[in-house]
């Protein structure tokens, strides 16, 4: 007879991989501290926390998309577009709340657009989101005409710059959304169906799951979170800038993959992704502390993603 008794013990084993990457994070931080002790200063930790919030939010969305068997290359550009839009709306006299709501609606619609193309027209996800990557960045430049949108209301800056009991506000936003995503992936029918869809779309469909709706949900979530991130960045910079978020899609994908999300779909955890986002932020921060020219950052990010994916594939091959 099969008993549940050992269920808890077995479930614990699943956290093992997260422990491994947590260890990697600690070693990495330790290494950077030795080279530059300023790493552990409270000022720097605040900076890292705000960076984690940005990478984390994008990576959570990316994780959902990848679990569902897709990919979203548009998040970096969408961050720029939504940041510019929220600034534009406020500049034109809309209230902060209304501006934010409209921007979140627009970004969700972009996600819906991606989802519909992927599911109904069967356009490969990397193509349609690559299209948005170019188009959203272009649109952001059209709106700003190369100049940042400044002169935003003071109260808006709290979102990106404020803190509550010393905890940066963006981090609180991250924790909120991470909790929601964690709950969805782990404890809901929707979450289970997402994993099933990414794991084997045909089997999931034949099990009575509306796989198209599930996938559309992931793209909408990803774009929505990119919208949130765009608003945070605009608030942090006190302006709407068309140039922000370049290459963030890579960091988000890398964070997800480092955190154990499999690019072939059906696997990944929010906890792992959060640690992955922390690792990416520490690497970013380390590059600055080690005074490596920002021109080389793209190279490092490219190397990190290629390495992370290669390791993931080797790990799988070993398991089989």
């Amino acid at each position: 007879m099969i008993k549940i008794k050992n269920a808890k013990v077995l479930r614990k084993g699943i956290y093992f991989r997260e422990l491994n990457i947590l260890l990697a994070l600690i070693i990495l931080s330790f290494g950077i501290t030795i080279i530059n002790p300023r790493f552990l200063s409270s000022f720097n930790l605040q900076i890292i926390a705000r960076q984690v919030a940005i990478f984390g939010l994008l990576a959570i969305g990316e994780t959902l998309v990848i679990i569902g068997g897709g990919i979203d290359l548009s998040v970096g550009s969408l961050v720029a577009l939504t940041g510019v839009l929220v600034a534009l709306f406020m500049k034109n006299g809309l209230s902060i709340t209304i501006s934010i709501l409209i921007v979140l609606l627009i970004s969700s619609l972009v996600g819906l657009w991606h989802g519909l193309f992927v599911t109904k027209l069967k356009v490969p996800p990397f193509i349609i989101t690559l299209g948005t990557l170019t188009a959203a960045r272009g649109l952001a430049s059209v709106i700003t005409k190369g100049w940042p949108i400044i002169g935003l209301p003071e109260r808006f800056f709290f979102i990106g710059q404020g803190d509550i009991f010393g905890i940066p506000f963006p981090l609180i936003i991250l924790i909120l959304f991470a909790f929601i995503a964690f709950f969805i992936t782990k404890y809901t029918v929707l979450g289970r169906q997402l994993y099933a869809t990414g794991g084997n779309i045909e089997a999931a469909r034949l099990s009575g799951i509306d796989v198209d709706k599930r996938r559309i949900f992931t793209y909408v979530s990803s774009s929505f979170l990119a919208g949130i991130t765009g608003i945070i960045i605009a608030s942090r910079l006190s302006q709407g800038q068309a140039g922000v978020g370049g290459g963030y899609e890579l960091s988000a994908i890398a964070a997800a993959v480092i955190g154990g999300t499999s690019l072939s779909g059906g696997e990944g955890t929010i906890l792992g992704t959060l640690i992955g986002a922390a690792i990416m932020s520490v690497i970013y921060n380390g590059l600055i502390l080690l005074e490596i020219s920002s021109y080389w950052h793209d190279v490092v990010m490219g190397l990190v993603i290629v390495t992370a994916v290669t390791l993931d594939i080797w790990r799988k091959r070993k398991r089989i």
Binding site: V189, Y195, G199, N200, E202, A203, A204, L206, G208, G266
Partner: peptide
Amino acid sequence: KLQGLILSMALHENLSLPSLPSMF
């Protein structure tokens, strides 16, 4: 393997998959 199961998932997740919406 191609249509019946989600091979990367656990037994219990596969078995309960169609029943989840009506059960919960």
